[in-house]
Amino acid sequence: MIIISSSETASIRTEQDVARLLHRIKAVAADTGLGTVSQTKLMTAASELARNMLFYANEGVSYLEQISQGTKVGIRLTFIDHGPGIPDVDLAMQDGYTTNPQSLGLGLPGARRLVNEFAIISTVGKGTTVTVITWKL
């Protein structure tokens, strides 16, 4: 069972909102005891996911939570948007696949490699929710 010990939410509408979120992630991750490499990976994953949200859905909401499960502690981030959704999630998770000509197509698959747990639920016409967890190892 996952226990949530702190939670904060933010709406993501601009690049500056993303920058603010990354600063908060750094502070909370450091407070949780994550090392520099884990912090950097988590912030980079968050940057990719928040950027996707802005590009495809124009806006969304982020949740930043300190969690524990048994003796493990970690950070869980959730990104929720009500954008167009992803028709083929398996395809979107492949390296280099993108519908944005300005992108390298590394956002989703790259973010998955940077965290310990990754989940994505997307419904066309309803939106997309991505959840990632980084545990303190």
Binding site: V37, T40, K41, L104, G110, L114
Partner: peptide
Amino acid sequence: MQPAVAITLIELGL
């Protein structure tokens, strides 16, 4: 480049 950034870039696939 900070070491953590280098590690992250490689895992990101960049």
